[in-house]
Amino acid sequence: MQFFFEVLIGGLLAGVMYSLVALGFVLIYKASGVFNFAQGAMVFLAALTFVGLQEKFGLPLWGAFPLTLGVMVLLGIGIERVVLRPLVNQPQITLFMATIGLAFFLEGVAQLVWGTEVRRLDLGLQDEPIESVMERFNLLISKFDLVAALVAGLLVAVLAVFFNKTRIGRALRAVADDHQAALAVGIPLKQIWAIVWSVAGFVALVAGLLWGARNGVQFALTFVALKALPVLILGGFESVLGAIVGGLIIGASEKLAEVYLPSLMSDFLLKHYDISINLAGIEGWFAYMLALVFLLVRPEGLFGERHIDRV
């Protein structure tokens, strides 16, 4: 039982890390109704810029952070100017294609400026069990995971309040729904987009730091974005709350499946069909399976907006 809890808690904490990446997608989706293909590239760029600044100028953590944040905000404003502004009132597929182009551009620029080798990112957090918890409950819980989860949780809470309790949330939904109508009622489309892309840049930075510290800052960081996909499908593309709940479900079920499913499955197969098989690597595909099932049952996700079409 104790092992079960260890797996569960480890999974939940990892799930929060997924949520963090998913959150970036949700922000852009809420503001433009578009899946931002470049989110992974932004995570990569943010982490690489952070490490690069640290190395080049010998900056401490608290020096490199605001600088990188500044870069990400400038990037957000730049994206609005150069990419989005000419595409106002274009079909959403056009915007989506633009984000694909943006992804390649950002990946290229990041590597051009900072080089391609894998870098270590040290946030001063050790990935080791917390002693007090180990003593009292006999559970192994990583200090790094816990802090990462707390940071992500805090970020989600702040953003949830920001978007649900203010008129920005309303303006965002309006902009995502119909650019032309939003302009006609006087919603400042350009500012809204610049703000949202800057905030998405900030979220990408936090995600990049935590994931970079865990896996090293390398090109593979861009693939972290792929793990956010099932989270979004589960939680709903336009829900901040959905991103966190979806992340928790994916994280926990993935880890539990990895640990318990192989033995269950091979036992079952051996008993009923007399097939002996060794199942491994379930963690790699389980999340996508779950997402697929969800798409069949509830395509708008747990917290997504149900779409109504009149015929």
Binding site: R167, R170, A171, R173, A174, D177, D178, A181, A182, V185, G186, I187, P188, E305, H307, I308
Partner: peptide
Amino acid sequence: LFKGMSVLDNMMTGRS
């Protein structure tokens, strides 16, 4: 109109 939003929210956007 903003189809997914309530009548009230739609009208509130008018006051932006």
